[in-house]
Design a binder for these strands. Structure first.
Length: 192
DNA sequence: CAGTGGATGCTCT
DNA sequence: GAGCATCCACTGT
């Protein structure tokens, strides 16, 4: 079942945990989403916090599209834009369990262990071939494909990684027990 | 394993 | 000029 635009036209705080277990493909390459983080407009850690700039336009909508940004001058990171136009909310995809196109991923990443192919936001964009040209693309049309999960996994919750502001907000969601996370969640699901 | 530092490009002050 | 929603290689236990 394809995830349609309506799925994303809600609060990122509802959408983000529901993305865990969905399958993300780009040109047929990808896997199961096992880790995401939520960012909203009133969030000092969000790119949208200071208002729209030329590089953050796609984060301001419409929902159901990609927001891709360059990180630390080197990496690309993929967000799935949520909420409705005018509001800027997005889920950062931080890790996948690789299922489709393993050879293509290994070729792009170099000879890498399966566990390391997509275990980080920069890694998965490299593995899937996502760059600035993917920014603003609709998520329900090629080359993107998003398939809804068929059952609800156990969700781990924790604090977000790599930020310096609003570090206490528990807006990181993971597939509990997955070996493909960018970093483990702390002990029991519920806090991190 | 844990901790550190460099690469690198763009935005904002 | 500072600061990043990162990753990797390298060090030291």
């Amino acid at each position: 079942m394809q995830l349609r635009r309506e799925f994303f036209a809600r609060s990122v705080h509802e959408v983000a945990p529901e993305l865990i277990g969905a399958t993300l493909l780009y040109d047929g390459v990808g896997g199961v989403i096992v880790e995401v983080e939520a960012y909203d407009q009133d969030d000092p850690a969000s790119h949208a916090f200071r208002g729209m700039t030329p590089t953050t336009v796609s984060m301001f909508g419409p929902a159901g599209h990609a927001y891709v940004y360059r990180s630390y001058g080197i990496h690309w990171c993929l967000n799935l834009v949520c909420a409705s136009e005018g509001r800027a909310e997005a889920a950062l995809v931080r890790a996948l369990a690789p299922t489709h196109g393993l050879d293509a991923m290994r070729a792009r990443r170099g000879l890498d262990r399966e566990r390391s192919l997509c275990s980080g936001p920069g890694k998965l964009c490299q593995a899937l071939g996502i760059t600035r040209t993917s920014d603003g693309m609709a998520l329900d049309r090629p080359p993107f494909r998003l398939i809804a999960r068929e059952s609800e996994p156990e969700i781990a919750i924790g604090t977000r990684i790599g930020i310096t502001r609003a570090i206490e907000r528990p807006w990181r969601y993971g597939y509990a027990g997955s070996p493909f996370l960018s970093r483990p969640f702390r002990s029991l699901p519920g806090w991190g």
